[in-house]
Design a protein around this nucleic acid. Structure first.
Length: 464
DNA sequence: AATAGATTGGT
DNA sequence: CCAATCTAT
């Protein structure tokens, strides 16, 4: 018998920094010895560069992934540049039999992946892509009119009633790949993901432990002690009431299928936690909904989904000094509304903000201050560790009222009332915004002005 | 994934 | 006088 050993398989990691429940990795391992690759791509056109907080998370996440992969005998090669060139080059260099990856759904990313696939095929190499990041491919759930969903509830009902594949088990270790077969890559530090000069990341490091193992630990904690109170506590920023798994889901340390499945089992096994588990599944579905919207509306980050909002007279910080002052105060958590200021401080310090507070803080910016949602979206993009392009832009458009299934414009949060309801003792406020600032707007008046501006927008729209 | 202001109906 | 309910935005 003269069996030649199977060729090396490249596993291209992107937004799926985990070993368990990873279809592309599982498939690669079944085909032959695996070399893993991560490419920091800041060169391909149209891909928005990561924000500062996200880069910090990615740095830690890659370190953690590398450790998990070592356990499996899989080397991780780091690289930087245009992925559609780097991937075929690495495949050629390693004489790989195939390259495996889990799909991405943004238009620029899909173009890169298609070009990589074409380049690989031209070299006579195989490329295999898998669904791994979302519960469903964005084109799988469609309305009866064969269009993408624009409204969350029908989308959720379809998702809930659909079959969602169970998570894949963690893979077994492989024999170590021969050292000489591993292409040389960059050191993690050479990706330059950490701040170059002033290190502002201490608060992030204190709050988070990026990686697959801590993410799974948190999921266990959520199932054991968060889910039961979730229906009441999820709106309470002063309590540990949410899953806080958004960054783990964003970077794929935790697979959405694993979480969906675990919540389903919890609901079946523990009647007291069933309601909370279902509510959490709804949140997970919201993430899929955002990507579904983005896939069917690739201009979501740039354009209002409701075109009538093109006629809204948004304020921009570069256009007038008052708006510049408003935006600066909002960013620094000096608006004078303690719930908002606490949220903005929490964001700045920890790279994350409680979702209830995100809505209130966003509402203040786009409604009371009439600042364009893109200004807030960009700030969140740079400061959130969980920022992803679909959820960030869809949710900002949701608050602004310009989204497909957005909050009606007249839904203006009153930050003082919201604080009374959801931070009743003010402990969240005093934790993150211990010093009260002077309010930068009159709530009553600015609310009226916002509603007037909306009426003006409609008049302008009718006239044109 | 609202709020303000008015109205109602109980004390 | 108040809390609950309705209604417009």
């Amino acid at each position: 018998m003269n069996h030649s050993p199977p060729p090396v398989q490249l596993m291209w990691f992107r937004d799926d920094l985990r070993t368990a429940d990873n279809p592309a990795l599982t498939s690669a391992l079944s085909a032959g010895p695996v070399i893993a690759v991560f490419i920091l791509d800041e060169d391909s056109p149209g891909i928005r560069p990561l924000g500062g907080a996200a880069k910090w998370w990615l740095h830690q996440g890659l370190k953690s992934l590398q450790a998990s992969l070592v356990e499996l005998g899989i080397p991780l090669v780091l690289s930087k540049g245009s992925a559609d060139e780097k991937i075929p080059a690495l495949a050629k260099q390693t004489k790989a039999g195939a390259v495996h990856w889990n799909r991405r759904y943004g238009q620029p990313e899909r173009e890169v992946d298609t070009q990589a696939k074409t380049a690989l095929r031209d070299l006579g190499l195989e490329a295999h892509s898998y669904p791994g990041t979302l519960l469903h491919e964005p084109w799988e759930l469609m309305t009866k009119n064969e269009t993408g969903y624009k409204v969350f509830t029908p989308f959720y009902n379809a998702l809930r009633d659909s079959t969602i594949r169970p998570p894949l088990p963690a893979p077994a270790a492989q024999d170590h790949v021969t050292e000489s077969a591993i292409p040389s890559g960059l050191e993690l530090e050479e990706l330059e993901l950490l701040p170059a000069t002033m290190d502002w990341t201490a608060g992030l490091a204190e709050r988070w432990e990026p990686g697959e193992v801590p993410a799974r630990q948190r999921l266990e904690e959520v199932l054991e002690s968060i889910a039961e109170d979730y229906p009441v506590h999820h709106d309470r920023p002063d309590l540990d009431g949410t899953s806080a798994l958004s960054p783990a889901l964003r970077w794929g340390h935790l697979g959405a299928h694993e979480m969906w499945d675990a919540l389903g089992r919890l609901a079946a096994e523990n009647p007291k936690a069933a309601e909370g588990a279902t509510a959490m599944r709804r949140q997970l579905a919201w993430r899929d909904f955002c990507w579904h919207l983005y896939y069917h509306h690739p201009h979501l980050p740039e354009r209002n989904l409701r075109a009538e909002f093109d006629h809204f007279d948004w304020a921009w910080p570069e256009d007038d000094p008052q708006t510049a002052g408003h935006v600066a105060a909002w960013q620094r958590g000096k608006t004078g509304f303690r719930l908002v200021d606490a949220g903005m401080q929490q964001l700045w310090q920890t790279g994350w903000m409680h979702n209830r507070v995100r809505m209130v803080a966003a509402s203040l910016l786009v409604k009371n201050l009439q600042v364009h949602w893109k200004v807030g979206e960009r700030w969140f993009w740079d400061t959130l560790v969980d920022a992803d392009i679909a959820c960030n832009t869809a949710n900002w458009q949701w608050v602004a009222g310009s989204g497909a299934d957005a909050a009606p414009y007249f839904r203006v949060f009153n930050p003082e009332l919201q604080a009374k309801k959801f931070d009743p003792q003010g402990s969240y406020a005093s934790r993150f915004a211990p010093v009260a600032a002077e309010p930068i707007v009159d709530l009553k008046q600015s609310r009226r002005e916002a509603l007037d501006a909306y009426e003006q927008m409609k008049l302008r729209g009718d006239a044109s």
